[in-house]
Amino acid sequence: MGEVIVITSGKGGVGKTTTTANISTGLAALNYKVVMIDTDIGLRNLDVVMGLENRIVYDIVDVVQGNCRLKQALIKDKRFENLFLLPAAQTKDKNSVNTDQMKELVGNLKPEFDYIVIDCPAGIEQGFKNAIAAAERAIVVTNPEISAVRDADRIIGLLEAAELHDPMLIINRLRPAMVKKGDMMNIVDVEDILAIKILGVVPEDEAIVISTNRGEPAVLEQTSKAGQAYRNIVKRITGEDVALMNLEEADGLVSKLKKLMGIK
C-alpha cells in the first residue's frame, strides 16, 4: 500500500507545486511508482510545471463525477514510466469535489502506487480540506519570510486539529547571502518559531525558473543546488538519513558559533 503525502503551505507562491513536481520526479527516479494529484481546482499548474499540459484529456472532477475511469485520467510522465499525474480541473467549480470523494479516490490509488503526492491549493478553504482529507503525512513548505512563516504556523495548527500529526517543514528559496548579512531569517530562526522537524532547505536558484520554463523538474539537474536539495529531500522521505546540505554561509555568524559550541 502506498504512502499518501500532502504538500501544503497556506500562503500562495511559496513553491508548493514546484516542490510537488520535484519530490514526485525524484521519487520516480529512484524507481518508486508515484502519482501526483493536483487539487487546485480552477488554478491548476502542476501540469505546466511537469510539461504535461498538452496531454490532458480528463481531470479529477471527471473522475469524481464518473465521466471517465480513474485510469483514463492519469497522465503518464514524459521521462518516467512509473510517474503519473491526475490533473485538477481548470474550468469547473472548485467545490465540485468533497472530502469523502477525495478519500475514495486516494483509496483506489493506494494499492497501485508506492507514493501518492497531493499538491494542495493555497488557502484554508475546501480545497485545503480535500487535499489533507486522505493524507497520512504532511509537508509544509515555507519561505524564510514573515508572511509565509505566519501562514505556515496557521497551517500546522490546522493539520494538528485534523489529526495529521508531525508535519515536516521545507524552507524554500533561502538566500544564503542575505542570511549572512542578517537580512533574512536563517534555518534556526524558522525552526525555533514553527517548532517542527525540518525535512529540507532549498536555496533560491535560477535553475528553478529555467527548468520550470522548460517543464522539466530541476531535481534531475545534477549541477543545480536546488536540484541537489530536492534529491536530498527525496532520500529523507524514503527513510534515508541525509545531512542538511552545506549552503555555504547559509547560517548567520551567531548560529554558526552556537553550533560550534554545541547549543544548536
Binding site: I146, V179, D183, D189, I193, G252
Partner: peptide, 11 residues
Amino acid sequence: SSKNVATERLR
C-alpha cells in the same frame, strides 16, 4: 538586523 526585526514581529 532586519531578520531580527522580522523574527520579533513574527513571535
